[in-house]
């Protein structure tokens, strides 16, 4: 009897904490559907009396949130693609191929894990400016790839080290060259590690702010994080529209999370423990 009572207390405490973690997001959803008169007229916490979907139309139509959205989708997917290709090939080269200096190269790459992006901000800004690629997609894709690679190479390389070599040897006996062994044998085998890398890269580049705010000031190339910042500047008092923008920015992440929550959690833990 006493045990049961204790169990209930723990459950209630855990549920209360779950509410603390989720309620702000639920609140965001409700105020994104309210008019200003409702928010400022006392209905701060409740459901909207009148569901104002126009907030979303105006976030999309006037504030161009969809443009930012597509920029984010573009920058993030290209970044993920490049990181996956480069990380898998170079992890293969470091982990499997035979050459001198493997250790040194791995150390240089791992050094990248330690470097805070602050350190690179101004030098990168100057270089991108001189190359005239500030305010292009490259201004974000190149640094995102560079700062995503160390962790990605590390994850793929340590995954690869746990795979036995028999299949590669069999492929070699069948007359496959290095590139075909990589493409037909290795790449399919390391797919689980690449999924981890993809999720990791998605979260960091979709949410990145410091580079985005510094390297992109033209409206056409702004990603969601920067776009939302400038939208907030222009809409200071229009909570509903801002809320709608925030919801649109969050939906893909939440969808990915709900569909793949185990995989996402696993990726983050792996990234943390290995890093």
């Amino acid at each position: 009897m006493k045990r049961n009572w204790k169990k209930w207390c723990i459950q209630i405490a855990l549920i209360l904490f779950a509410i603390i973690q989720i309620y702000p997001l639920y609140w965001l959803l409700t105020f994104s559907l309210k008019s200003n008169t409702e928010i400022f007229g006392g209905n701060v916490a409740g459901l909207p009396h009148k569901w104002k979907f126009e907030n979303y139309l105006s976030a999309i139509g006037e504030a161009k949130v969809l443009n930012y959205f597509f920029n984010s989708v573009f920058v993030t997917s290209i970044t993920i693609l490049i990181v996956i290709i480069l990380a898998s090939t170079s992890a293969y080269a470091i982990e499997r191929m035979i050459w001198r200096g493997r250790q040194t190269v791995m150390k240089i790459i791992l050094l990248g894990l330690m470097v805070p992006i602050h350190a690179a901000l101004l030098p990168l800004f100057m270089v991108l400016k001189q190359l005239h690629i500030l305010n292009t997609y490259f201004a974000l894709i190149i640094p995102y790839v560079a700062f995503g690679l160390p962790m990605a190479v590390y994850i793929v390389a340590s995954f690869l080290s746990s795979i036995p070599r028999e299949m590669e040897e069999a492929a070699a006996i069948d007359g496959c060259g290095t590139i075909r062994i990589f493409g037909n044998v290795i790449f399919p085998l390391v797919k689980p590690a690449l999924a981890t890398v993809a999720i990791f890269t998605y979260i960091s580049s979709w949410n990145e702010l410091m580079f985005a705010v510094t390297f992109v000031s033209k409206k056409e190339y702004k990603t969601l994080t920067v776009g939302i910042m400038s939208m907030v500047g222009a809409y200071t008092t229009k909570w509903g529209e801002i809320g709608a923008g925030l919801v649109i920015a969050t939906i893909p992440t939440i969808l990915i999370y709900l569909l793949l929550s185990d995989q996402v959690q696993k990726s983050i833990v792996e990234g943390a423990v290995k890093g």
Binding site: L25, N207, L224, I228, A249, T253, I254, V264, I268
Partner: peptide, 8 residues
């Protein structure tokens, strides 16, 4: 959930 949401 809050971990994966953008800081902005």
């Amino acid at each position: 959930i809050p971990v994966i949401i953008s800081t902005v």
